[in-house]
Design a binder for these strands. Sequence first.
DNA 1: CTGGGGACGGGGCCC
DNA 2: TGGGCCCCGTCCCCA
Length: 272
Amino acid sequence: MPRSFLVKKYFSNKKPYYRESQLESQTAFVPESFPRAELPTQNNSSALTCYPASPLFSSMDTLPAPLSPVTPVSLPPSPLGPLDLSSSPFSSSGEEEEDGGRTSDPPSPDVIQHIYHCLHCSKSYNSLSALSHHQTSHHQFSHGTALQQTPSLPTEASARPAFHCKHCPKEYTSLGALKMHIRSHTLPCVCPTCGKAFSRPWLLRGHIRTHTGERPFACQHCNRAFADRSNLRAHLQTHSEVKKYQCGSCSRTFSRMSLLHKHNASGCCPAS
DNA sequence: CTGGGGACGGGGCCC
DNA sequence: TGGGCCCCGTCCCCA
């Protein structure tokens, strides 16, 4: 089960897998559908090239105190109006970095959109007033019901803000989560050896181990060592009599979820 | 086909 | 608030 607690996934869960052939073509691992995720290439020859403070996020860091979408008063048309992410280096021209202070450019509400969801139904609105207007219909309706556990009058607190990613359909309940997610599109951390880009520095460090051969995670039970802690954890399962993932039908255990899935797919548990 | 390893993505937690 | 790390998970490859 994915641990995507905060994200709604509307499309395939298939994750990008970067083949060796893609590594050879350094542009291949930047999905073309995300044109902003262009790799900074000029500094690739430097030691460890990572751009955690890319102008994109600098822009986001300079956000005014986040205007809560549930603020009951004077909600601007775009809660993130001053935010201009279009001036990121991932836009068509990095020269537009200097554009950060310009006010002529409209904000980019398509980068981060605040959507006000009705808690009573699935409808969404881009303004609190529209949501409030809509929710009056629920208010009127609830008067005729016996439901008393929730306030019949819609409150601002019931308007749940959502932060939408421009690059994909995902939405998040916090700006921080969205910013973290956006890194998976911008891929600011670039391997100096092969040019492969990663969303986070520690992912890059793990990748660099594939070049250096470093394996800091040693198994206590055998002489194997791993570059990745998760792989060590999976390996430790092989030393266990009773493995972590158990078939619900035959009680057979497996070291990995994927093996259990394969087992189920093979027909042991057709019902489940 | 199965089991295991390699590589990596991503959200949550902690500092 | 952001970075580092943890944990869980997936996908692919190979023996």
